[in-house]
């Protein structure tokens, strides 16, 4: 599977994603944009700093500010989940994906690997699925992911890889949340992070409901 995954990453990294005459990049049923990674890290870290140093006089205790940070973290993770879900759907239905993977079954490890291969080729990070129980659970390790670069300018107290956290559950929903095909069938928790001093990031995705049909 490792060789298969590496080859997929190489194949997807060769696909040209180019802007049209309007300076837009319509692809995979979404508008794509490519931006410096530090833009995303600057926005999240500056916003958390602003919340933690909240001195506006309204509930400005450290406990309240930490709760507000948790709330903001949830919004970042949610944005990533929507991004992963809708872009992921566009990706798996694209001709490029179908032909490169050989028209895989949607509920297969191949489809899941393909989605992560695209996200690696898009610069999100170096990923490895270390455990997978279809319809139930996935453990992903992330090496050298862009969200961990935040450690150079900000010391988060908790995992800061909202993009990967949201995308893990979104991809599991795409592949294994049958028959509803909606977000919300899985949750993901970041259990390790390079930005926290760990060797790699670890993301544990589990299902949220027991009553699914398989």
């Amino acid at each position: 599977m490792t060789v298969y995954f590496e080859n997929l990453i190489l194949d997807f990294s060769k696909i040209q994603i180019k802007a049209d005459q309007d300076g837009l990049i319509p692809a995979y049923d979404v508008l794509v944009v490519q931006m410096p990674t530090n833009f995303f890290n600057l926005f999240s870290s500056k916003l958390f700093r602003a919340i933690l140093s909240n001195s506006k006089g309204v509930n400005n205790s450290s406990e309240v500010n930490e709760n507000l940070c948790d709330y903001a973290a949830g919004l970042f993770e949610n944005a990533a989940a929507y991004c992963g879900f809708y872009t992921g759907l566009g990706i798996i239905n694209s001709d490029e994906f179908q032909s490169l993977l050989g028209f895989p079954d949607r509920h297969s490890k191949e489809t899941l690997c393909g989605l992560f291969a695209v996200s690696v080729s898009w610069g999100w990070g170096d990923f490895e699925i270390t455990e997978l129980i279809p319809y139930e659970r996935m453990v992903l390790r992330a090496y050298d992911y862009y969200e961990s670069d935040v450690k150079y300018t900000y010391k988060p107290q908790k995992g800061f890889a909202y993009m990967i956290t949201g995308v893990c559950r979104a991809f599991m929903d795409i592949v294994y949340n049958s028959p509803t095909y909606k977000l919300g069938g899985f949750r993901c928790e970041q259990t390790k992070g390079i930005e926290l001093g760990d060797e790699y990031g670890e993301f544990v995705t589990t299902r949220t409901r027991e009553e699914w049909e398989q």
Partner: peptide, 23 residues
């Protein structure tokens, strides 16, 4: 090796409009 994408030497990343509008 690093699985990172660079544009003119700077680390870059692709995202979609769902992400940029939700941010």
């Amino acid at each position: 090796n690093r699985k990172r994408y660079f544009l003119n030497g700077e680390p870059d990343v692709f995202h979609c409009h769902h992400y940029t509008t939700l941010l």
